[in-house]
Structure formats: C-alpha cells, structure tokens
Design a binder for these strands. Sequence first.
DNA 1: ACATATTTTTAGACAAGCCTAAAAATATGT
DNA 2: ACATATTTTTAGGCTTGTCTAAAAATATGT
Lengths: 217, 217
Amino acid sequence: MTLSEENYLKAIYHLGKHGTTAVSTNAIAEQMETKASSVTDMVKKLAEKDLVNYVKYQGVSLTKDGKIVATSIIRKHRLWEVFLVQKLNFTWDEVHDVAEQLEHIKSDKLVNQLDAFLEFPTHDPHGDPIPDKNGNMVTREKTILSKVSINSVGVCVGVNDSSSDFLKYLSKHNIALGTSIEVVGKEKFDDSMTIKIEDKTLQISKLISNNIYIKLV
Amino acid sequence: MTLSEENYLKAIYHLGKHGTTAVSTNAIAEQMETKASSVTDMVKKLAEKDLVNYVKYQGVSLTKDGKIVATSIIRKHRLWEVFLVQKLNFTWDEVHDVAEQLEHIKSDKLVNQLDAFLEFPTHDPHGDPIPDKNGNMVTREKTILSKVSINSVGVCVGVNDSSSDFLKYLSKHNIALGTSIEVVGKEKFDDSMTIKIEDKTLQISKLISNNIYIKLV
DNA sequence: ACATATTTTTAGACAAGCCTAAAAATATGT
DNA sequence: ACATATTTTTAGGCTTGTCTAAAAATATGT
C-alpha cells in the first residue's frame, strides 16, 4: 500500500459517504488536487488490487477491502489529532496537516497503544468519530446549524469543514466543541442567522451555519 | 527534502562519524541496501543542493547544511523512540522500524512539543544522545566492553548495534541500560569474556562485548 | 612498476505517479 | 432527437529513484 494509494482510498471514502456510493473521476481529482487522467490511472490500479469497484465512465466505489484500508487510515488520522491536541498542546486548527502525515505510519502496535494511551477516545478534536480496532464507530445524532428553526438551542458537536481558516474563525468567536448555541434570528433573504453564544450575539452567513453541527437540547 | 534524500544524509552521518570524515560510495550502498550506481546518482543530487561535499572517486562528507538536516532527523528518530518506550510500552528492540518512519514527519511544532512532553530527554532507549533544538548533544563517557581489563566494573550505558536480535539477546540475559557488569574473565584465544550480572555469570563472544558500551565505576 | 583486482561512474532502462493534449463516451438543452 | 457541452479515458511524455552492464579510475600485490 503506497502513500498515494492510501490517499485515493481516503478521498473515495470521504466523497462517497463511507465509500458506499460511486464517486466521479472529476470529484476525486478535485478533492486530491490532481488531474482526472491521473485519477483514471490510479483507479485502474486500485481496481486491479480489488480495493475499488470500477466500471469505465461509471464512477468508483470502495470494495470491502478498500473500506477496511480507508477506515484504518481515518482511525489513525483521528487518533493522532487527539494526541496532538491533548498531549502536545496543538489547537484544533493546527492538527490537520501533521495528522495527514502521521496517518500513513505503519505499525499496528503503534496505533493500538496510542489508542490505549489516549484512553480510547471516540471522537477527534473536530467531533468526528474515531473507528475502533475493528473499524466500528459510533454515530452521534447531529443537525446542521443552518437547518434548525428559530429559538432552537443546541451544543456544538462537530464541524463540516476542518480547514484552518474556518476553525480559526470559530475560535475567534468562542465557538468550540461543547459550546452552547441559541438561534435567535434567521434572515430569509440571504439565509444568514443570528446566534447567541455566552450572552453575545453573532451574525453568521449561510456558509458558516452550513458547516457547524449541533446537538439539539 | 525527499524521504530518500533524508535517508542518504542520515547514512552518511552515521558512517562518517558525524558526517565529518568522507565515506565511500560502496559503504553507503551497503548501509542503505542499494547499489553503488544509485548512490552516485543521489550523491550528485545532494552535492548540487550543497548538502554534501563530493569529489568523484574521493568519497562524500556532509556540508554544514547537510549536518543540520541529518542531526534534525536523528533528533526526531531518538525522540520518537523515547516516546514509544516511555508512553506506549514498546521495548527497546521494537522501536527502530517505527522510528524510521516517524523521523520523516515534518513539523517543527510537533518535534519541539514532543521534546517538552517527554521532558527533554538527553538519551534514547539505546543510550544514544538526543540532539537538542539547536542540534547540540551531550557526549557521555563510555568504553567498549571488549576493551576493558579484567576485574573492571561498569554500568551499561549504550549499545553499538540496535538490531532487534542483539537487543533481544541482551534482554534475555538481563542486560539493559543501567545494568551493572563486572568482567570476571577474559579469554585470549577467541577474545571471549566472562561477565557477572546480578550474581549470574555469563560467557560472551567478542561480537557481543564489542557492541556493549559501559561507564566504568 | 606493472598487471590485476576493486571501486566508482556512466549509460541506458524501468516502474510509479504525475502531466498535457486528443479522442471517446456520456450528459444536456431545446 | 440531435447538436453541443461536459466528463472520462487514452496516448505519450516527464521526473524520481532505482536497476544492470559496461567503462573508467583507483588500489594492490609481487
């Protein structure tokens, strides 16, 4: 399993809702910041190894084996993120790039001992679930903030965009996992929202509210 | 800096006593389990980047820049080894292969925070010194066990061979860092030695005694 | 010192993973 | 339904790091 192969499997997993639904060549190319022709080449290679289902012009999905590999990489990525935040004082907007490197380290003992050392965390610093040793993960009930009705109250349990810029924006406005958010206004015209956080109100655009997950209380 | 380039610099550092003395193409090839022709190619590339001094047919040594890179890789390797042993319950014979992967992770914050998390260790699990943030490391007085005279007493402070097989041999005979070793006999014929460890005597060949460092007491 | 052995370099090839440009297949609008 | 647009694949090429085989340089033994 090369680094590149692993990255393709991960991309297909993320794009195709756990790798189950077929994704297009172009979608993969965009996600991986590469060209469609490169994707076609690699997808053929992965199909040869029975890691993806591939029919020319019909898109790609993960096989059972492909899902196992993708899940194990995601497990490593998220465990390392927890390590970086909890043990090495990284902030949630700093962990992604380093975890992208660490996720490719090959050692079962390393991963499982790290898991134990962190006391078997179930979620990473962005609220995403961490697959266990067998690839299983919990599904936590969550709602996209943009979809909840006025006067709803919830707790932030995750984000849909883990980019550094978005996370820094949230931190600046005191939004973190566990933060209580109340919807005090919604604007039909541009779908913006007014929310209340610790008694401070904040105006957020649809782009923002679309990337915050809350659990209603 | 590619993975391959980093590995060559590390090899040149180790072979040439901190990279200072020139090493031969063949020596590098053997150390890296590759062919001499591949070494020539890479060495030219490294010379182009001013990381090594290279004169055709005359061997290779590290430049100042090359030494900085090599030292930083060794720093990472040894810090990760400490982490694996102290935090993740690895034994000293299990850490090498994983550390070889981890040493290539690029993130200054990661390395320096890891260093702090481990409380700035000065030596790795094999007794080798860990360069600090500025590349400096302590030099600890040590003697090769095979060279000490009969009736000497010392404490094991390092090994010259970090292979899993050798370390397992040592563990089996209760030799670890800090173990007190007394030389109770030396055999001229084959340079074997009789040593005493915790009141048990042990016969060791020259190959063994040549790979154990002690500090005389 | 000179013939031979060894070491090192060069030349040419190959696989992986990427690219561009062109061709083929599929999707879309009216 | 058919012309056009878009997507995907193919064909051919490039770079990195490796290899083998042959040539060149250096080292060695008597």
